[in-house]
């Protein structure tokens, strides 16, 4: 079993080196901190203040937790756009002609986003949270951090699935993650409780990792039993794995259809 996993892990590791080279080219630590992170903290603050004005100060805690966790979702969904870079770089045909499966390559190829997103969410939760009434007990901190990591990872897997769908429709590469993030903000319990919406929307929201992991995070801050928190976290993890499997099937299907229809070309 370990030997079977060793090769994919090896491919993911080398692919991730590519991801972090992109990250270093896009950001310096200064531009990440004062550009990206500053922007996301401003976004969280904006929604919290807006909620206070519209709905009252008692909602600030709810909003800061949802929007702080949402930052890692937004960044993890960037995988949809960055996966299409393979086509523009002219490397997609080479990947398709290589013996390694595309899923492992793409899994590593955009890993910078969930890692960076995790950092963003942690700063937002632990720095902004207390300003808006969130109290972190020391024993909550590692669990909260784990939930953030799981949210970024699960959303990344969901994003990989979307990326496989968008790879043949490059013009949608920024539209799809934007619209998806908007829908998740509205329907997964970020701005308003899921119960606000008709029940069928709640059932759809259940197939999104964020829904369960955000619920777990809220339960943690409300001192719910650890069993309940871990059960919701496990559900979120399971949904994330489901999307990874779906992404794998979508990438395999994409290349299979590409061979048939001629959509994988030597030229970008």
């Amino acid at each position: 079993m370990l030997a079977r996993l060793a090769l994919p892990a090896h491919v993911v590791r080398h692919s991730a080196a590519n991801a972090f080279a992109d990250m270093r080219a896009i950001y310096t630590w200064r531009t990440w901190t004062f550009g990206w992170l500053g922007r996301m903290l401003a976004q969280v603050t904006f929604f919290v203040l807006l909620g206070r004005v519209v709905a009252g100060p008692e909602h600030a805690t709810y909003l800061v937790i949802g929007n702080a966790l949402m930052t890692c979702v937004i960044e993890s969904l960037t995988v949809v756009a960055s996966t299409t870079w393979e086509r523009t770089a002219g490397t997609l045909a080479l990947l398709a002609a290589a013996p390694a499966g595309p899923t492992w390559v793409f899994l590593g190829r955009s890993l910078q986003w969930p890692v960076s997103g995790t950092g963003t969410s942690l700063v937002a939760l632990f720095l902004l949270g207390p300003f808006f009434g969130v109290t972190w007990r020391p024993e909550h901190i590692p669990v909260a951090a784990l939930l953030v990591v799981l949210t970024a990872a699960g959303t990344y897997c969901f994003g990989l699935f979307l990326a496989a769908l968008v790879l043949n429709a490059g013009r949608l590469r920024n539209v799809v993650p934007g619209v998806t993030a908007l829908l998740m903000m509205a329907f997964c319990g970020v701005q308003v409780p899921i119960g606000y919406w008709p029940s069928w929307i709640g059932r759809i929201a259940d197939i999104v990792p964020l829904t369960h992991l955000l619920h777990a995070l809220r339960a943690l801050t409300e001192d719910a039993s650890s069993g309940y928190v871990f059960a919701r976290a496990a559900l979120g993890l399971l949904v994330g794995v489901f999307w990874l499997v779906m992404a794998h099937l979508a990438f395999e299907s994409l290349l299979h259809r590409g061979r048939r229809r001629g959509t994988v070309d030597f030229d970008p």
């Binding site: 090769l7 090896h10 491919v11 590791r13 080398h14 692919s15 080196a17 590519n18 080279a21 992109d22 270093r24 080219a25 770089a89 002219g90 490397t91 045909a93 080479l94 990947l95 290589a98 013996p99 390694a100 390559v105 030597f266 030229d267 970008p268």
Partner: peptide, 25 residues
């Protein structure tokens, strides 16, 4: 390939080669 297509410009020369070597096992 010829031209700029098919290489990862932000990776080093060595990392490019190691990446493709990994894909071939």
């Amino acid at each position: 390939f010829g031209g700029d297509r098919g290489l990862y410009g932000r990776l080093t020369v060595g990392d490019n080669l190691r990446f493709w070597a990994a894909l071939y096992g």
